[in-house]
Simulated scan of single mutants.
Amino acid sequence: MAALLDTGLGRAVVPKECEPPDDLAQRLSKALGIPVRVAHVQAAGPDDIPEAARTATEILRVTRACGLPPGLHRLEDVLLEFHLSRPDPSSHKIAALLDPVADRPELLETLRTHLAHQQDRRATATALGLHPNTVDNRLAKIGDQTGIELASPRGAALAIAALLLRDTQDTTAGGPSTRP
């Protein structure tokens, strides 16, 4: 068995028959002493490796933008979010929905964490080290300032898309995202 490791971006190309263990990211995190995200994408053949590498990079960007924890991620894990993050002519308008709170990073992080925790206010509060009422207050401010009804399915979808597209714009405009 042979493997090729790109140390610059941490990409590994391994034979198709080598399925990564589900705890690969945890093993790497333990060995390296830092949280690790791993994206698993199969390439049908050598000519498909560059596209698989781009897809893996995008999967990792989406997991960071959505506030998902480090670990092993596949496209199937973030399929909707991946799709929502693809730029099109309406992208700038969707991303701009969060402009009224763009100067409030604590509000954006609360929103990101709240969505990552399936809109569970207590889980969000625990993850952020806040009181649940503080989470409610921050979410209410976001709703008031953006007009997005976060409690509705459509509002949650708009918020997810806006976060993803903002992250895409930030990444393409000024370099890679700084989120872990």
Rank of each mutant, 00 (worst) to 15 (best):
Val135Glu: 13
Val38Asn: 04
Val101Asp: 10
Leu28His: 02
Leu150Tyr: 03
Gly45Gln: 12
Leu108His: 09
Gly8Ser: 10
Val62Asn: 04
Glu106Asn: 12
Thr168Ala: 14
Pro100Ile: 11
Gly33Pro: 03
Leu115Glu: 15
Pro69Tyr: 07
Val135Met: 05
Asp77Glu: 03
Leu139Glu: 09
Leu60Val: 11
Val14Leu: 11
Gly129Lys: 08
Ala44Leu: 11
Gln119Tyr: 02
Leu107Val: 03
Ser90Lys: 06
Leu75Cys: 01
Arg166Gly: 04
Asp6Met: 05
Ser177Thr: 09
Ala43Ile: 01
Gly155Lys: 04
Ala102Gly: 01
Ala52Pro: 03
Ser90Met: 12
Asp22Ile: 01
Glu58Arg: 15
Lys141Cys: 05
Arg121Ser: 10
Leu32Gly: 02
Arg86Gln: 15
Asn133Arg: 15
Met1Pro: 14
Glu76Met: 00
Pro180His: 10
Thr113Tyr: 09
Ala162Tyr: 03
Leu128Gly: 12
Ile160Asn: 02
Ala162Trp: 02
Lys30Thr: 15
Leu158Met: 12
Glu51Ile: 02
Thr126Tyr: 13
Lys93Ser: 15
His114Arg: 13
Pro50Lys: 11
His131Thr: 10
Ala161Asn: 00
Thr171Val: 08
Gly129Glu: 07
Val14Tyr: 04
Glu109Gly: 06
Leu165Ile: 08
Ala96Cys: 02
Val78Gly: 01
Leu130Phe: 05
Phe82Cys: 04
Leu75Ile: 01
Leu32Lys: 06
Ala44Val: 00
Asp47Arg: 12
Ser29Pro: 04
Gln145Asn: 06
Lys93Pro: 00
Ser85Pro: 01
Arg64Gln: 03
Leu5Arg: 12
Asn137Phe: 10
Val38Glu: 07
Arg54Cys: 04
Ala12Met: 14
Leu32Val: 02
Val41Asp: 00
Ile142Gln: 11
Ala2Gln: 15
Leu32Arg: 07
Asp136Tyr: 09
Pro180Gly: 08
Gln26Asp: 15
Arg37Val: 06
Asp22Gly: 05
Ala156Thr: 00
Pro69Ile: 12
Pro20Ala: 03
Arg104Tyr: 10
Ala96Gln: 09
Leu72Ser: 08
Leu72Asn: 06
Ala96Arg: 05
Thr113Arg: 06
Ala123Lys: 11
His114Tyr: 15
Phe82Asp: 13
Pro89Arg: 13
Ala31Thr: 06
Asp77Leu: 06
Glu76Val: 01
Leu79Met: 08
Glu149Tyr: 07
Ile34Pro: 05
Ala125His: 02
Ala161Arg: 02
Pro180Cys: 03
Ser152Phe: 00
Gly8Thr: 11
